[in-house]
Nucleic acid binder design. Structure first.
Length: 274
DNA sequence: ACAGGATCCTGGGGGC
DNA sequence: TGCCCCCAGGATCCTG
């Protein structure tokens, strides 16, 4: 689902709706998400006030006034929204938190249940968890030397490297393909074979594509909605993702699709030389 | 150590 | 209409 631009959009939408609000009740459904919801978390959440909402990679972090952190991942089909309390409950809603004035509800809905919501007792524990999982740096303002070094030191194809959250946090299948198109690099190129110039181009393309996608409020293929339920618009700007069989709008060659790193990969055979 | 594949889920769409 | 197969914005565990 949601990659960095979608998660960033959710965070920006939720911030004004959540910061300063207090949880007055918490409800969790029975079906397990990727990480099970612990019953004890309800008690610790009720009465807490949200002090900040932020993003790290594809993770959403709600900072609570007791130092606790509610950390949410949207998986493939997750939706985190603030709605009015009397809004009809949609199927596959797994978490609901009532908010104080104005009276509203924070809801987490996830059809495929690849998402997760975890309550950490402190900021330190969140950081330790991110570190333990090897979460890499944010894609904006990346150190060029770091990036070149990561490219030079792996035998994987560039597509696989872009999807590795340990190399750079937040890129997923859509924006990996779009960034490779922008950098005019074939997705199956071996990363260590990139020269410095190509590596720099890719680093800049990643940031550029992600920033433009944020401006478009992310991409809605099917399930994704922002924090207030609105769809994204960047799917209309795709140059290669989901464009298989259509002419490249740069050179008119037909966009192709292959499977790489276990994921569908779209590219222009003319613009992106192997 | 590292790279690639399988796995967790549900639902939509295409072909027959 | 129904069935079967493939596909999907991701992360993690297992294998070779």
């Amino acid at each position: 689902m949601p990659e960095l631009p979608e998660v960033e959009t959710v965070v920006r939408d939720l911030r004004p709706l959540l910061v300063g609000r207090r949880f007055t009740s918490a409800w969790a459904g029975r079906l397990a998400l990727r990480k099970p919801w612990k019953a004890a978390w309800k008690k610790r959440l009720v009465g807490r006030r949200v002090e900040a909402v932020r993003r790290r990679g594809k993770w959403i972090v709600l900072e609570l006034d007791d130092g606790g952190r509610l950390v949410i991942h949207l998986g493939m089909t997750g939706q985190l929204t603030v709605t009015s309390t009397d809004e009809p409950r949609k199927a596959h809603t797994h978490l609901r938190f009532d908010l104080d004035e104005p009276i509203r509800q924070l809801r987490f809905r996830d059809v495929r249940r690849f998402g997760s919501a975890t309550l950490f007792p402190s900021e330190e524990e969140v950081e330790a968890s991110f570190t333990a999982s090897g979460l890499g740096p944010e894609p904006f303002g990346l150190d060029p030397a770091y990036w070149r070094q990561r490219m030079a030191s792996t035998s994987r194809c560039v597509k696989a490297v872009l999807l590795d959250q340990g190399v750079v946090a937040g890129v997923g299948n859509i924006y990996a393909d779009e960034a490779l198109f922008e950098a005019r690099l074939h997705p199956s190129l071996i990363a260590s074979a990139l020269g410095d110039e190509a590596a720099d181009r890719l680093r800049q393309a990643v940031a550029s594509v992600l920033n433009r996608a944020i401006e478009g409020r992310g991409s809605t293929i099917r399930d994704y909605v922002g924090g207030s339920g609105l769809r994204g618009a960047f799917q209309n700007e795709f140059r290669v993702y989901g464009c298989t069989g259509r002419p490249c709008n740069r050179c008119t060659a037909v966009i192709e699709r292959v499977r790489l790193a276990g994921r569908s990969t779209h590219y222009c055979p003319q613009c992106q030389k192997s």
